[in-house]
């Protein structure tokens, strides 16, 4: 069984879960995910690993209530056990010394951005973190992000905290300042990642996104997670989840993400 060691609310419909998972913690790297199943009738859902500690054998999951499983997970407490936990899945993010790296996280996407920023910093990159939230209530991990960033820019859509605007506005400002950026990593909703990609494309800045496609097996068998990158079909669980943002067909990704919209409503009733 996979025990929940700690759990609390991070913000509106946003939760923090600390899991006992020594094997996963030992191997986990930035960019990887786990597959969870919460009950016998449950589905297999991918969640990004937001933090891991090999020494004490824990991994951290941060999620937003969206479908049935995350809803059920939100109702679980410290001491409860997940039925299944598989990982670490997917390829780790390629971490080298790029020079000047910008990481962009949107909403719940800030969680996986954290271990990425930390790993980049450890490799000697100059790390600028741009994190965006809907409003002040939604902000989490500001301190953690500050600790692993050379520079931290916080934005809220409504201006209730930090700067007012979207993460793309913040990046635009930065780019217009004439700063040479070597690489951009963006994790968040598909629309946000697409907006970042469109912004960095004309600037010729290499941009990596972590795709949140549909998934069932999460281990290179079923093909539910297929996406199109550079006109070719790729599988998020085996070939990703990181892909070259300028090659990703975001329109297709978003349409495929909507496949079970009606069923999601039925299931939550």
């Amino acid at each position: 069984m996979f025990k929940i060691l700690d759990k609390y609310i991070l913000g509106p419909k946003m939760h923090y879960v600390l899991m006992e998972a020594p094997l996963i913690a030992k191997k986990a790297k930035a960019g990887q995910f786990v597959i969870v199943r919460v009950r016998e009738q449950g589905e297999r859902v991918p969640l990004t690993i937001a933090d891991f500690d090999a020494k004490i054998g824990t991994i951290t999951l941060v999620f937003q209530e969206a479908g049935k499983t995350t809803h059920l997970l939100a109702g679980m407490n410290k001491g409860d056990c997940l039925l299944d936990l598989l990982g670490p899945q997917g390829n780790p993010t390629e971490i080298i010394n790029y020079g000047n790296a910008v990481v962009i996280g949107g909403g719940i996407g800030v969680a996986p951005i954290y271990p990425l920023a930390r790993a980049l910093k450890e490799k000697g990159n100059k790390v600028t973190s741009i994190i965006g939230y809907r409003s002040k209530d939604h902000i989490f991990w500001e301190d953690k992000m500050k600790a692993v960033s050379d520079r931290l820019i916080i934005a809220t859509n409504d201006g209730s905290y930090g700067k007012k605007g979207f993460v793309t506005d913040m990046f635009k400002e930065l780019a217009q300042g004439g700063e040479k950026v070597n690489i951009v990593f963006a994790i968040g909703p598909a629309v946000m990642m697409r907006a970042v990609a469109e912004m960095t494309r004309p600037l010729g800045i290499k941009t990596v996104v972590s795709l949140n496609s549909l998934m069932v097996c999460g281990m290179g068998m079923c093909g539910a997670c297929r996406v199109e990158v550079g006109g070719k079909t790729r599988f998020t669980c085996m070939d990703g989840p990181d892909f070259d943002a300028h090659q990703v067909d975001f329109d297709l990704l978003m349409k495929r993400l909507d496949t079970y919209k009606n069923e999601e409503c039925t299931c939550q009733k």
């Binding site: 297999r44 079923c222 039925t266």
Partner: peptide, 17 residues
């Protein structure tokens, strides 16, 4: 896999659609 392993034929009793 959806139907056999995840029992999607029993949706919404089972969660996988």
């Amino acid at each position: 896999t959806r139907v056999n392993l995840m029992k999607a034929y029993k949706f919404p009793e089972y969660d996988t659609p």
